[in-house]
Structures are given as C-alpha cells and as structure tokens.
Design a protein around this nucleic acid. Structure first.
Length: 323
DNA sequence: CGCAGGTCCTGCACGC
DNA sequence: TGCGTGCAGGACCTGC
C-alpha cells in the first residue's frame, strides 16, 4: 500500500525520467481511473496531449506534475493518487502491457521540438535514452487511485506555492519543510477524537496510512484510542517525531534504485519485510518489551473498519479512551 | 465469503 | 429554523 515514502520514490523516478517531456498521446483503458477528471476519460484524452511535464511535486500521498503549454508557465497539473494498489511505470512504448493497465501516456523524447519519428526507435540511437519516446503507465488493480488534471492555485498558507485545487485541503506532511508540529499539537488539543483517527486525517497531518500510523504509535508508546485532547506537548512532539522517523526509515529502505527504465512503486519496499514492529505482527512478541526481558505478544484489534496492532504492555489502553 | 484499506461522500449531533 | 462545523461510518474496488 503506497504511503508517503512510496509516493516520494515515484516522484523521484518521474523527476528523472519524465520531467521536461511533452505529452504526445493518451489512452484511457479504464474510464474509472479518470473519474476525478472533469469531463471524464474523453476530456482527459483530449486535453493532456501537447502539454509539457514540469518537475513533479508531492504533498502527502498526492503527487502532481505541473503542465505547461508551449511558451507559458504551468497553470495546471496532472494529479496522481495511487490509492491502495496504484503504480506508475515508465516503459518503452513497445513493451508488453501489464495485467491491470488503466492509462497510458506517450511522452516524446526531450529536446526534439516536433514529433520526429523515424521508424521504430527500439534498439537504435540509444545514447542516454533522453531522445527516445517513453510510455508512462498507470497500473491499478483495485481502481481506488486515479489520474486527473486540475488547476494550480496558491497554497492557503504560502501564496507563492502552487498546489492543485483538489489538493488544497490536504495538510502539509512531516517531510515538508514548512510542516509545523506545534500547529498540529494545537489542533490535537481542540479535537475530540482518538489519536489514530487524527493521524489518518489527511487534513490534519498528511501522508500517514494505517501501517505507519500503527508503527509510529508503537514507537511513541501511545495507544491508538488515546484522546487527542489529553496529549501534552511532549507526547505530541514525540508522536510526530516518530511519524517522521518511520517515514525517513521507510524512504531509506524503500528507495530502491530507479536507475533502470522502471519507476519502482510496487509498495513492496524492504521496509515491509524488515522493519515492521507491530503491523502484521499479531501474536509475536513486542520487540521493545522483549529487549527488556518481558514477553508481551502484539494484539490486533478491529477498529474503524481497519486493523490496529499494538503492544498492550507498552501501549496500554488509556483510562479514558476514544475509539 | 471475508478481509485488505485511502479517500470521498453522506448523515448525524452539536452550538449559535 | 437554519447553517456551519466536527465527527463517524459506509461505499467504492478486486484478488486471494
């Protein structure tokens, strides 16, 4: 499941392979994957070609590529959300289609102005690959994700920054240079909900999904049902630092190479195999308690239609709880 | 058949 | 009464 670190890996891959290229063609294979585009698949296919991709940006789990018409600065963006199972892949146009291909976007080579096509450029020319056409593919088994275009508007807190209108309600994430932990703490105090709900609310802090929420809560030794208004400043700070640490670690381990013609987004980063302390670990001993000589198996609860894993010993249920 | 979960949408309960 | 806001839960979707 792509969370912030996985999306950041995709952003970097796009920056390397796609930025600077003009779109020369679009095929929407699955219309539901463009359901958030105004006008749907037909409009998407007709509006995107001819625009040039600028440097990709990200906020939380949202990724966007500013789009510019020839001779103009970007005023809109191609927005991507990977949902539960989305991938963005960069391929050569002739490569065989993957199983759940939903959208393909043909990108011209860099540098060349007009579409110079000379036979199949399959094995010829080569160079550094910058001149060859590429195919950007959106692959998504469950169709929770999608691609759409949207106007760029000034960010509410920093009018010099542009964000897609549909992303304006998403809070800054813990890796954002302008992320403000104290402002989040103030909002925790005003809320009347449990801390895990708050962590998953993308309008409060963005980029956190179910897996990293559980991991960060474990790291900060907080139970998921702890009422946010009872957190003190140091607990809030500890929690947000834990979220940051979990994301940085995942990025370091999941940021596998994208020096091949393949943008890695499969969500199977090494992080999932090696570093999970509670998520998916039900029944196994809590690593922290084990290190202290105690045997304390991880518990899995059903909660807000999701699983929540925690250690009952070092993350005890609070006296007052908000589920 | 139930489970996996990110986001949008709906509806409810407030307070003014 | 009406409106805005905050919060909770369901719908969406497919493969195992």
């Amino acid at each position: 499941m792509p969370e912030l670190p996985e999306v950041e890996v995709v952003r970097r891959g796009l920056e390397t392979w796609a930025a600077g290229r003009p779109v020369s063609g679009v095929e929407v294979v699955e219309p539901r994957s463009t359901r958030r585009h105004d006008g749907g698949a037909v409009a998407f296919e007709s509006q995107l070609p001819g625009l040039r991709l600028a440097a990709p940006e990200r906020r939380g789990k949202y990724l966007w590529v500013p789009l510019a018409a020839a001779g103009s600065p970007p005023d809109r963006a191609l927005v991507a959300h990977l949902g539960m199972s989305g991938q963005l892949l960069v391929n050569s146009p002739g490569d065989p289609d993957p199983r759940h291909l939903r959208i393909r976007i043909l990108l011209e080579g860099e540098g060349e102005g007009e579409g110079e096509r000379e036979g199949e450029g399959e094995g010829e020319g080569e160079g550094d690959g910058r001149e060859a056409a590429l195919e950007l593919r959106f692959v998504d088994q469950r169709i929770f994700g999608g691609l759409f275009m949207d106007a760029l508007v000034p960010a509410s807190d920093r009018p010099d920054q542009l964000v897609p209108a549909s992303v304006a309600h998403i809070a800054r994430d813990p890796l954002d240079p302008y992320f403000d932990p104290d402002a989040v703490y103030q909002r925790f105090r005003r809320r009347r909900t449990g801390v895990k709900r708050a962590l998953l609310d993308q309008g409060l802090v963005s980029g956190i999904g179910n897996i990293y929420a559980d991991e960060a809560l474990w790291q900060a030794r907080l139970h998921y049902a702890r009422p946010t208004e009872t957190l003190n400043r140091s607990e809030s700070g500890r929690l947000l630092e834990a979220v940051h640490a979990v994301m940085v670690q995942a990025l370091a381990q999941g940021g596998t190479s994208f020096d091949s013609l393949y943008v890695n987004v499969n969500g199977e980063s090494g992080y999932f195999d090696r570093s999970l302390n509670v998520y998916g670990q039900a029944g196994r001993p809590c690593p922290r308690c084990a290190a202290e000589g105690h045997q304390s198996p991880i518990v899995k609860d059903r909660f807000m239609n999701r699983s929540s894993a925690y250690c009952p010993r070092c993350q005890p249920v609070p006296r007052r709880a908000r589920w």
